[in-house]
Simulated assay, not measured.
Amino acid sequence: MQIQVLNSQHSDLDTIFQFYDMAVEHQKKVFNKHWQGFNKELIETEITDSRQYKILVDDEVACIFAITFDDKLIWGNRDKDSIYIHRIVTHPEFRGYSFVKEIIKWAKVFAAKNGIKFIRMDTWADNDKLLEYYTSCGFDYVGVVTMEQTEGLPKHYEGISLSLFEIKV
Rank of each mutant, 00 (worst) to 15 (best):
I47R: 13
I67R: 07
D49R: 15
G96R: 05
E46K: 13
S98Q: 13
K54S: 05
D49Y: 13
Y97P: 00
F65D: 06
A107Y: 14
F99Y: 11
K117M: 11
A112Q: 05
T48D: 05
A112D: 10
D59P: 04
F99C: 10
V89I: 15
I74P: 08
D70R: 14
I85N: 03
K72D: 09
E60D: 05
I85M: 06
T48I: 02
K80V: 08
K113E: 12
D49N: 15
V100H: 03
E60S: 08
C63W: 00
A62M: 01
V109P: 04
D79L: 10
K117G: 13
H91S: 10
F110G: 02
T68M: 11
K105M: 01
R95K: 08
N114P: 04
I119S: 06
W75E: 04
W75L: 08
R95Y: 03
V61E: 01
D59V: 03
H91T: 02
K54E: 08
F118N: 09
H86F: 09
V61W: 05
I116V: 14
D71R: 03
E102C: 04
A112K: 13
P92S: 06
I67C: 02
K101H: 05
K72N: 12
I47H: 12
D79K: 09
D71H: 05
S98W: 04
K117H: 11
K72E: 11
D58Y: 06
G115Q: 09
V89Q: 09
R95L: 07
N114Q: 00
Y97I: 01
A111W: 09
I83E: 00
W106E: 09
I64M: 14
D79A: 10
A66G: 15
I119Y: 04
A112T: 12
T48P: 00
R87T: 15
F94L: 03
I88A: 00
V61N: 07
Q52K: 12
T90W: 02
D71C: 08
A62K: 01
I104N: 08
I104P: 09
V89R: 11
K117C: 10
I47P: 09
S50E: 07
K108M: 14
I64H: 11
I47L: 09
V109Y: 12
I88T: 12
I116T: 10
T68C: 10
E46A: 11
V100K: 01
A112N: 11
E102L: 01
F65E: 01
A112C: 06
D70T: 15
H91L: 01
D49H: 14
R87N: 14
F65M: 09
D71G: 07
A107W: 13
D79Q: 12
I67F: 02
I85C: 08
S50A: 02
F99R: 09
S82P: 07
F110W: 00
F99V: 13
I103R: 06
I88Y: 00
N114S: 05
I104K: 05
A107H: 15
A111R: 12
I83Y: 01
V61Q: 03
D70S: 15
V57C: 13
V109A: 13
S98G: 05
V100L: 11
G115S: 07
F118D: 06
R78A: 07
T48S: 09
Y84V: 10
V109G: 02
P92F: 03
F110P: 02
P92A: 11
I74T: 14
S98V: 01
I119P: 04
K108Q: 15
G96Y: 02
S82M: 13
